[in-house]
Nucleic acid binder design. Sequence first.
DNA 1: CGCAGGATATCCCAAATGGAGTAGAGTGCC
DNA 2: GGCACTCTACTCCATTTGGGATATCCTGCG
Lengths: 215, 215
Amino acid sequence: MTQERASIMLVDDHPLLRKGLKQLISMEDSLEVIAECSSGEEAIARALDLDPELIILDLNMQGIDGIETLKRMRDEGVTSRIVMLTVSDADDDVVAAITNGADGYLLKDMEPEQLLEQIMRAVDGKMVLSEAITEVLATALRRPSVKQPPGKLETLTNREQEILSLIAKGMSNKVIARQLDISDGTVKVHVKHLLKKLGLRSRVEAAVWMVHHES
Amino acid sequence: MTQERASIMLVDDHPLLRKGLKQLISMEDSLEVIAECSSGEEAIARALDLDPELIILDLNMQGIDGIETLKRMRDEGVTSRIVMLTVSDADDDVVAAITNGADGYLLKDMEPEQLLEQIMRAVDGKMVLSEAITEVLATALRRPSVKQPPGKLETLTNREQEILSLIAKGMSNKVIARQLDISDGTVKVHVKHLLKKLGLRSRVEAAVWMVHHES
DNA sequence: CGCAGGATATCCCAAATGGAGTAGAGTGCC
DNA sequence: GGCACTCTACTCCATTTGGGATATCCTGCG
């Protein structure tokens, strides 16, 4: 049978860069660019339609930026591997990208050969990070809690921890409210806050997280 | 300080039986009947309002019956202990009562002294079952899988198990749908079925159940 | 004293969830 | 061939959930 080629989608609002990248990728037989998009909206739609194996996503775009595009893709259920490509190495962007489900973060000033190699590693399911980036990440993770990093139980207030425990017992907001004798609107506020602090997106994730963190 | 008396609410559409029960309970200083209701609707409203420690609920009532009343109370977040009281020992009722969150199931033909003792045990947080009932329950649990009993992973179809695993990873129906390449409507159907089979009431409970059952 | 953080509560709104029913296609069994 | 089961998909509908904003009350800190 013919060798299956990994499908790749490029997203960048700079046509020239797309061209160069496509050229680079075409040099590798195992890879194939099946689509190019110049905006986040377009990218989300096509990603859902084509379900490529890898999406290379520019961080700095007009309209909705790369991070926002990444978020929405994951929200919509895109399961493709997604690698961010950018000139920037701003700390927040790296952290935001990774915590929002990016599988890699590469800089545009890499050597073409290295870049191609990293793209192949990404297709193989590996997390790819430019060397300059790994340091940034490590530093970001080392500082106590700027904002995003994983999120520890201790960063939650007592009330939030209490409510998280009840969520992990499968209780709805209404039941929790009666249990604690407060309004369910208030419970919702606490849930919202605890989800944000832990970097989770639903009470289900919170429940699983809790079960795994109480050992 | 004065001895705290355990608050009890009686629910039975037979006034005479309420009177007798109240009389019986009044013989014990540690107990206090704070409300009497003659219908399920009334009982739910007052339970939410008064939050008694124990609710003694008649199974056979006109209008919404005891099981339905029990269900709705738990849905509404009533956390009181609830003991079913009935003349019936029909298997289904016992199983339905227990699986819907009842903390006990007593028969009306018990000796008054025994009944009072059981009520006190219920207040103390113990599960109380008439002797005749424990047998029924044991039998019900022994037959393979009539319907309600706990629910094992093996009773689920492959697809349902697969989807349960994804739920336990915190995925939404939409994401699961994309992952499995089926419509999210179909995912909802599978979720509905697996919840029913496992006797759970939400995907959060399902996620927690799964995490605890995969060891 | 002023200010920050925590807990409470409310409003609005979009999306997700769960329950009920119907229905077609495929598979395996007696 | 008929029957049961599974998987798929849809409709309709009520409730729940999560996000944003705003506001009050209280407590602890400098």
